[in-house]
Nucleic acid binder design. Structure first.
Lengths: 220, 220
DNA sequence: TAGATTGTTAATCGATTAACAATC
DNA sequence: TAGATTGTTAATCGATTAACAATC
């Protein structure tokens, strides 16, 4: 593969996937770039450009097969592998992520949760017992953990990252709302709730001042 | 104000705010665009360009006063107003958002939570009693609700949006993971956990194939 | 075949970067 | 004053859009 694919393109792929899932749920088997464009709020041109970076998935004159394209995107995004996941921080947020989100069912294997609070240790989350934070390092080494979902309080975040990285976790999915220094070789992907809320209030402000709002193409 | 400000710029403002908060916490009172650049992973040029869209907040030769710039950004983002907020869906996720996030303390006034599950009605979240979903419409009309935090199951999401919008909620902060149709006049800002996780696994895939990863400038 | 829609090349547009005069 | 750093203009780069030949 020749040139670097832009981060904009990468962040649009999950959006295509959402649209395809909806189409599949509605029993639609084939879709054109134009239809996909109207579903996602993007242009047909952008979609064809994005897909072209990875290969040819459509059929001229007939569009894309929903299942085929979905499978291709899943593969590109690395979502057809099996990931071994732990939860770090067994509060409401962590519990919600592990128990609520359906995408977490397929492919992802949830191994265990870790906590420092003795009151929470021993309870169950996602059908696994909550373990003591103390034991996380040996657990990671013995169980080849790929991803740690980080839902600890802000103050404990950076220290937890260090321990997780040193123990061999490959990636950290960060919900703590803090900017974390990623140790070399460890990937950190952050979801900043506050950013999203600030963009929301910004848009509210624009509405009030009667300016036009350009709704997001998701930089993030 | 002349031209439309790009969505990329808007999404960078909260990142500046995060850096400024960190500086303020460290007792730093003044910062240059260069320093801010290294803290955020952006370029000094981009930062000065972004700020210039809204005005002049620095002092030539001396950089920006941390508190002044912070205040300016808060104002631009509409975060210095008071918002009246309700929670719709009193599960783990909603509870986490209301109780965990410090930014929710200042400025935002949490009024009530709503649920359909009789088991949850009457309990407490964020020092407020969970009310019956039935009563949401009259509550919104009587209490001038600005923002609804939506944390209901996917299947209930679109119907809830219709009710909330018709009752007069101005904005919906959507955590349901579904693409929602926004009724005219209602703003919807969505956080898609799945998108973030897919980008994470995509980056993991790139690492494995030894390609370079361009880390995000946050399209979102 | 005719119609539709892709994959791809070329044109446009906008965003980022570089550079520098203004000035604290 | 000299040094530093802004605000801003100009240059570059990349991303989006438009167009169209290829083809199912």
């Amino acid at each position: 593969m020749e040139h670097r694919i832009s981060i904009n393109t990468v962040w649009r792929l999950p959006r295509y996937l959402r649209a395809l899932d909806k189409l599949a749920a509605d029993g639609v088997s084939s879709v054109s770039s134009g239809k996909l464009a109207s579903l996602t709020g993007l242009t047909a041109s952008t979609i064809r450009q994005d897909l072209a970076q990875y290969g040819s998935f459509g059929e001229q004159g007939h569009g894309y097969d929903v299942k085929v394209l979905r499978g291709a995107l899943m593969h590109i995004l690395g979502a057809d592998r099996n990931y071994r996941v732990i939860l770090v921080g067994a509060g409401h947020l962590g519990t919600a992520i592990i128990e609520n989100f359906s995408f977490f069912a397929q492919g992802y294997e949830f191994l265990a949760a870790f906590e420092t609070d003795p009151q929470k240790i021993g309870k169950e989350i996602g059908k696994k017992t909550v373990l003591a934070w103390q034991s996380v390092s040996s657990f990671i080494q013995e169980n080849c953990v790929d991803i740690a979902v980080l839902t600890v309080p802000r103050a404990a975040a950076q220290k937890a990252v260090r321990v997780l990285a040193e123990s061999g976790v490959k990636a950290i999915w960060n919900f703590t709302g803090t900017e974390l220094d990623a140790p070399k070789g460890t990937l950190i992907e952050s979801i900043h709730f506050a950013d999203s809320l600030l963009v929301l209030t910004h848009c509210l402000t624009l509405l009030d001042t009667n300016e036009n709002v350009e709704r997001r193409g998701l930089p993030h």
